[in-house]
Write a protein that binds this DNA or RNA. Structure first.
Lengths: 222, 222
DNA sequence: GTCTATACCACGATAGAC
DNA sequence: GTCTATCGTGGTATAGAC
């Protein structure tokens, strides 16, 4: 029993240490020796428990996914809206869109420097590994499908391609600001991007989505 | 004389070989030995001519920038428009925006697999190195400034922050589709993204930009 | 001045001792 | 289950050939 608990403990220490280092320095920028040292585990332990650096990365990834997919506050927003059998006023759909955008932005762009999970997920975007499919299925596909549902409420006759492209608008903006923060800061002559800045971006993207659907802008977005 | 020409030739061979390999496999994924072999140059030549892998990467980058910044067709579009002293009708500005978006998308998303330069520039986005500042100044800042000028023509009283965020819309979309193509394809159930697909994205982003400025949509975007 | 051969150190992986 | 020794590879540096 003690041995089994120790094993889990060792695995956990390795996953947490590896996650933080991978998120900070990337896959290639992180040495297994650094991970082992940070986790207070012997170098050989990585190969013993996970099989190698590559597999440790994938497992770190699954570890991060499990914690991320729980926060499906957005799911609730949409479900609540769909549950209402009352007539759906255009302006209510517009407000729903604004709320959903806000949730997405808050989940991904809130400056929570202590949490390495979001940054790790984003890294996978540009360095696709064998963990990519898992991340798509568990985190991004549900979000994407939800956005597509919203579009279909308003324009059920639209082409699939158009709906997909519309649904990508929020994600693409988040990916951009998350990955290109140093660039954006340099072009803006700033040190960092704060919450008010992202509130404005949220409002702008909401306006885009709403206007593309020919819905009326709520007062708060005017 | 012959020696000097040989030197330039060797440097050129190294830059071309390194550029292709860096674009294909990334910085960490490319070994100096592979570069030397592809360029038919001795391993030591990299250190002699450039000082090391890092400096070779930066020079490869400048090499790519010089070829990229020439294609400033967009510059011409905007200059032509500004040169016209006739009254600027809102719909003409809308058409200008659509044209400028088209040029941007064509420059970056046209499937020119043989040319490694664009892919190399994009890689720098998610793996910022010492070459970042150069890329921003030479390639992205001019584009960004151009977009900001367009916004000011219509709404000179807007806040700097709003203008920046508006100007980032095109770039963020391009960065997204360029970097996340595998993800997009998997979510769409496609093999690849073709020109008609990007034409639709171009149209959608143009609509966003135009509607955010309260300009009338040209007929071709209806 | 230009290029070649080679040695050096850090890293990932692995086998074998305990 | 843990730790150490060791191998192959990659980036770097340099002495010496031309």
């Amino acid at each position: 029993m003690g041995a089994s608990a120790d094993k889990e403990q060792t695995r956990y220490e390795l996953l947490e240490a590896a996650g933080q280092l991978f998120a900070e320095h990337g896959y290639d920028g992180t040495s297994t020796r650094a991970i082992a040292e940070k986790a207070q585990v012997n170098l050989g332990g990585i190969h013993y428990h996970f099989g190698g650096k590559e597999q440790l990365y994938v497992e770190t990834f699954r570890h991060a996914c499990r914690d991320e997919q729980d926060s499906s506050e957005q799911e609730g927003l949409l479900a609540d809206f769909l549950a209402k059998t009352t007539t759906r006023r255009p302006v209510d759909i517009a407000k729903l869109i604004h709320k959903m955008v806000s949730v997405d932005f808050r989940d991904f762009l809130e400056p929570n420097d202590e949490d390495w999970r979001v940054r790790l997920l984003m890294r996978e975007l540009y360095q696709p590994s064998s963990a990519m499919s898992e991340l798509i299925q568990q985190v991004f596909k549900p979000k994407h499908t939800r956005w597509m549902q919203v579009y279909r409420i308003v324009k059920p006759e639209a082409s699939e391609e158009t709906i997909h492209q519309w649904a990508f608008l929020v994600g693409s903006t988040i990916v951009f600001y998350l990955s290109s923060t140093p660039w954006v800061c340099q072009l803006l002559g700033r040190e960092s991007l704060d919450a008010p800045f992202f509130d404005n971006v949220t409002a702008m993207i909401s306006r885009c989505l709403i206007q593309l659907l020919d819905l009326p802008l709520p007062k708060e977005l005017r």
